[in-house]
Design a protein around this nucleic acid. Structure first.
Lengths: 134, 134
DNA sequence: GAGAGGTTGAGAACCATTGTCAACTCTGTG
DNA sequence: CACAGAGTTGACAATGGTTCTCAACCTCTC
């Protein structure tokens, strides 16, 4: 366990963060690993997973799951927000919904729940992808 | 493909549905398989998975994912709804939020997205569990 | 530049889930 | 009832994402 340990700056970590930075969309760990390989930056798959895990814990990266349970990651703003994600190309829009936040808190309180958290993601097909197919 | 094919009533399917019915909480396929085994109802694991899949497609069972991506299933009402789930005991409350539905559709439309779907789950600690600990 | 301890990577291990396929069960028909 | 045809089952293999293992390797400090 390295609860509070500093995260040493290594070539590999820099590479992973950079990869996340450049491709602004949600990507799986394996995608990022491939992407790094094609770029010439060899980083072990295990290291990619470990680094992403750390970043998620640190709140610097958002983690969500596709419909079949695969984990996908994205560099995001650190304020609380949700995502509108295109199923086709992965294009992502960060959205905020104060009303929704209020609603969830209200519902939870109404039923006597405390320590409330929630997940809310919107999936759809963006205009570009919808036009491309039929 | 059995798109519209009728679902034949078999001992195994009845058993799975009954198992879901009796334990009202979200359970993984493996849990249900074990549960059936202990009950004396032998049903193959593959069959449990297949049956659950069918039920989800038919909208008779709700599927959601734990934080580590495992699929869990629950017999639910067939109208569109979301869940307020207790982290401690798994107690589940079905909730509806017309305003949220409207909001998600609006946000999606605003960004030119079509074929929109969304996931929204609320996690918290219910009054009983909160009282029990600290 | 030596020591201590975090970090890496190749491959094995894990584990939920899905595929395979021969045997089996239903249901409708003659 | 026998029969055919189609859906269903289950033991087991195969997949595939993710984590573990552990010896070799960096980084930092003194």
């Amino acid at each position: 366990m390295t609860e509070t340990g500093a995260m040493r700056p290594t070539r590999q970590r820099t590479a992973v963060v950079e990869a996340l930075e450049t491709c602004g969309e949600f990507r799986s760990a394996q995608d990022l690993h491939d992407l790094l390989g094609r770029r010439g930056e060899t980083v072990g798959l295990a290291t990619v997973y470990r680094t992403l895990q750390r970043l998620v814990e640190a709140g610097e990266v958002d983690l969500l799951r596709t419909e079949d349970g695969e984990a996908i990651y994205r560099r995001c703003s650190t304020t609380h927000h949700h995502h509108l994600v295109c199923r086709g190309c992965g294009r992502t829009v960060e959205v905020e919904g104060p009303a929704v936040e209020r609603w969830t808190r209200g519902v939870a309180a109404e039923h006597g729940f405390v320590e409330v958290s929630h997940t809310l993601e919107i999936f759809g097909t963006c205009a570009a992808c919808a036009g491309r197919v039929g």
